[in-house]
Write a protein that binds this DNA or RNA. Structure first.
Length: 646
RNA sequence: GCCGAUGUAGCUCAGUUGGUCAGAGCAGCUGAUUUGUAAUCAGCUGGCCGGGGGUUCGAAUCCCUCCAUCGGCUCCA
């Protein structure tokens, strides 16, 4: 007998060789029907795999991440089986489960698959699923597996197997489809009740753009048809939050093909919004001892040769601008740090002067690949809320922590709760990508890890995501469709100070090298605004929103009073509009609601006589009658809740 | 940059197999109406159907090409 510990810590005894499915059956018939896979000792297993030793065991259903993963992974196989039946001769790459569904990378030879073919494939998948094909695991020696796929002419599988360790390799067979696979899988295909193929895409084999591009087919599956419906509805809802759509509707920003792709135009409302963010951060920074600086939009090529950006990104920049007579080359500034280094060098600093914190809303230009451009989140010209802190080595940690505090304060002021923190370190396998010495990198990485721990931030460590000159602490958020974007970033850099030969005079009267912290709490104004739009669906926090209230006179007769109210509110610095169109009140309200203006102030005969306003709140309706003063007080309190320091 | 899809008025979309197919709603403009918590009525103005080339008696519709957008891949200082 072996001891099985269930998640509720209860311990049950079973004969050695008991399976996940046996345990599920023992607990309840319902569970046995719904269980998808089993986690044994933290590892996800097939339901029919015998358990031979005492172990903690968790039975995974649709409600568990591991259960869904199993379902989706098996669905990828199911899709491959369907494609193999419909498109004989297709070669298969990899087909994993992902966060929302699964995909399979396939090589169709000279055929193509597009969304027109999805229905046919979905049908075939369901047809196979209904046959209740079991997923059978077999293990065969590596040589035999290589032989099998070499004969089949499937170079991708041969490639994959060649990279595996010697020994036995596992395969899963369901119906006529056999696939190289580590597993685990569903017991059979029957739990897959609803499938939907979502999109196709080109994907380079093994993620390497020098290799062949395969066709990637994305899909998702569910144990119930209704869940699929709900998922599709959720996707529709998410699309309504798309910042490109809301940006157009609320007249925040636009693009013009005549200006150029990836070059955003901030419309008046968007500019107001962005300016409010900038003013807010400037205020915080002044308090935190930052000094504003301003630098030009271009810089001599040599500046970037010194920094290393030229070697690293010269090819990915806009072509240099040459002066007509001297032939000197200038780059559109892709980064602010070299300019700020030159500002630091402009004067001799004592150790007592440090840290020096130079801040600039610096607009930079990068030649992003055309296929990468995406609304405001990925553009070719954008403004960083950049600053560079030049400090002594003993100040790095405190400075770093102070920057984290600024980032967290901003997130709080914006009611931003869903973010994750990532420590981006070097890729130990690709050290040639980075400049500087190991010793400096170690110091920098250590500083970030320590500061992050000290702040109690739960950060994920990701190797290979560092900048070429130093490691980073990145604040990541997801957009409406779950795509991850980097917003705020804080970077420790021992390398650029070396390259620019930055110095300060220490208490020993000797020259010393400062450490640089690069930081941008918003990251880029463009991307930050984009993500913020998607998070709040265009319903911005009151302190930030371009128009805070709109006065709606019932008719022309009350326009004079409306203007009086407008003047009063302007005096209180409440950004207010007036809708004096010849429209009925219902129409004005409808339009103001659509424009997501937080407060509608209705004025008519009653209000004029009582010297009041009738207040309606966006999204919630009539709040009743207020004096202007009380309304102002309410607005101020609402703002105070988010930014008490303002 | 690569793969695939899409591209009709400012916006959202109709336009069947190429033959009055250049349309609708919203927005905009005019006028009437003087309006009380999510759409007052009427009239009017908007388009070289993304650009260019081709096939055809005839192209929004078919083909080629370029551009842009969307979904991915790769990249992201």
């Amino acid at each position: 007998m072996i001891k099985i510990t269930l998640p509720d810590q209860s311990v049950k005894e079973y004969p050695e060789g008991v399976t996940g499915l046996d345990i599920a059956r023992d607990i309840s018939e319902g569970l046995a029907r719904n269980v998808l896979s089993v986690t044994v000792n933290g590892e996800v297993w097939d339901l029919d795999r015998p358990i031979r030793h005492d172990a903690p065991v968790k039975l995974n259903t649709w409600d568990d991440n591991d259960g869904r993963s199993t379902m989706w992974h098996s669905s990828a196989h199911l899709m491959a089986a369907a494609i193999e039946e419909l498109y004989p001769g297709t070669k298969f790459g990899i087909g994993p489960d992902v966060e929302n569904g699964f995909y399979y990378d396939i090589d169709l030879g000279d055929k193509t698959i597009s969304s027109n073919d999805f229905e046919k494939i979905e049908k075939k998948m369901l047809e196979i699923a209904r046959r209740k094909e079991s997923f059978e695991r077999t293990e065969i020696p590596k040589e035999e597996a290589l032989d099998f796929y070499t004969k089949k002419g499937d170079e991708y599988k041969v490639d994959l197997i060649s990279d595996l360790e010697d020994g036995t390799i596992s395969f899963y067979k369901s119906g006529n489809f056999t696939d190289l696979c580590r597993g685990p899988h569903l017991a059979d295909t029957s739990p897959i009740k609803a499938v939907k193929l979502l999109s196709t895409a080109g994907a380079y084999w093994r993620g390497d753009e020098r290799r062949k591009q395969l066709t990637r087919v994305y899909g998702i599956s569910f144990p119930k048809q209704k869940m699929l419906q709900e998922y599709l509805e959720m996707l529709e809802e998410a699309k309504k939050r798309d910042h490109r759509k809301i940006g157009r509707e609320l007249e925040l920003f636009a693009f013009s093909t005549k200006v150029g792709q990836g070059l955003p135009l901030w419309l008046p409302k968007g500019a107001e919004l962005r300016d409010n963010l900038e003013v807010f951060l400037k205020k915080l920074q002044r308090r935190a001892g930052y000094q504003p600086v301003i630098t030009p939009h271009i810089g001599n090529k040599n500046l970037y040769v010194t920094s290393g950006h030229y070697e690293k990104y010269g090819e990915d920049s806009f072509q240099p601008i040459a002066t007509p007579s001297e032939g000197e080359e200038f780059f559109l500034k892709p980064m602010n740090c070299p300019h700020h280094c030159e500002i630091f060098k402009h004067k001799q600093y004592s150790y007592k002067d440090l840290p020096v914190r130079l801040a600039e809303f610096g607009t930079v230009y990068r030649y992003e690949q055309s296929g990468e451009l995406h609304g405001l989140t990925r553009v070719r010209g954008f403004t960083q809320d950049d600053a560079h802190i030049f400090c002594r080595p003993d100040q790095v940690k405190d400075e770093f922590i102070a920057v984290i505090d600024i980032v967290l304060l901003i997130f709080k002021a914006l009611d931003f709760q869903d973010y994750s923190v990532q420590i981006s370190l070097r890729d130990p396998d690709q050290m040639e990508k980075y400049i500087g010495t190991d010793a400096n990198w170690d110091k920098a990485e250590q500083a970030i890890i320590e500061a992050t721990n000290e702040k109690g931030l739960k950060a994920e460590i990701v190797k290979g995501e560092a900048a070429f000159y130093g490691p980073k602490l990145d604040f990541m958020v997801q957009d409406a469709l779950g795509r991850k974007w980097q917003l705020g970033t804080i970077q420790v850099d021992y390398n650029l100070p070396d390259r620019f030969e930055l110095e300060y005079i220490g208490s020993d009267n000797q020259k010393h090298r400062p450490v640089m912290i690069h930081r941008a709490p918003f990251g880029s104004m463009e991307r930050f605004v984009a993500v913020m739009i998607e998070h709040c669906a265009g319903n911005f926090p009151l302190w930030l929103t371009p128009d805070q209230s709109i006065i709606l006179p019932i008719s022309e007769k009350y326009e004079k009073y409306a203007k009086k109210v407008l003047t009063l509110l302007n005096n209180y610095e409440i950004r207010t509009l007036i809708d004096d169109r010849n429209e009925k009140t219902g129409k004005k309200i409808r339009d103001a609601e659509t424009r997501k203006i937080p407060y509608m102030l209705i004025v008519g005969e009653k209000e004029e006589n009582d010297n009041t306003i009738s207040v309606r709140k966006h999204g919630s309706g009539d709040l009743g009658t207020y004096t202007v003063k009380d309304f102002v007080k309410m607005v101020e309190q609402e703002i105070e809740r988010l930014i008490p320091e303002a």
